[in-house]
């Protein structure tokens, strides 16, 4: 099959979801996790938009229902991000640490399992 513009961007979206998911799991800093979460979100919205483009019919350039969902989802992502940042800043103000672990981190590297 030939690669169309739509499927190229769909593949980009798929790659971004994986990249963002990896960052969300691996990055230790909560702010970096939030950032990776937004990268993943961008990829997901792109895949959804490709679906909208697939549904192009009648005189529409793209199916309007997925488009409307993506617009509302973008708003939700910002609201979630703002809340996560507020919680993180409060944690930092209270404890002076930016870790999600209950105890201060050990000085040795490599053993870290959960994050």
């Amino acid at each position: 099959m030939t690669l169309t513009i739509t499927s190229l961007y769909g593949l980009l979206g798929a790659a971004l979801v994986g990249l963002g998911l990896y960052g969300l799991l691996v990055q230790p800093h909560p702010l970096r996790k939030i950032l990776a979460f937004n990268v993943m979100g961008g990829g997901l919205f792109l895949v959804f938009d490709v679906v909208a483009r697939r549904g192009a019919a009648a005189w529409f350039p793209a199916d309007p229902v997925p488009q409307a969902f993506v617009i509302t989802a973008i708003m939700m992502a910002l609201a979630g991000t703002a809340l996560a940042v507020a919680i993180m800043l409060r944690l930092f103000a209270e404890t002076g640490r930016v870790t999600l672990r209950p105890e201060p981190p050990a000085s040795s590297d490599g053993q870290g399992g959960d994050s």
Partner: peptide
């Protein structure tokens, strides 16, 4: 806007960055 939000948070949290890097999984 998300970028601005993250930027302003990053400037306020510079102190803890080093410690957090140690928690990276193996």
């Amino acid at each position: 806007m998300t970028g601005v939000l993250l930027l302003s948070a990053a400037t306020r949290m510079r102190a803890g960055e080093r410690a957090a890097i140690l928690e990276r999984p193996g």
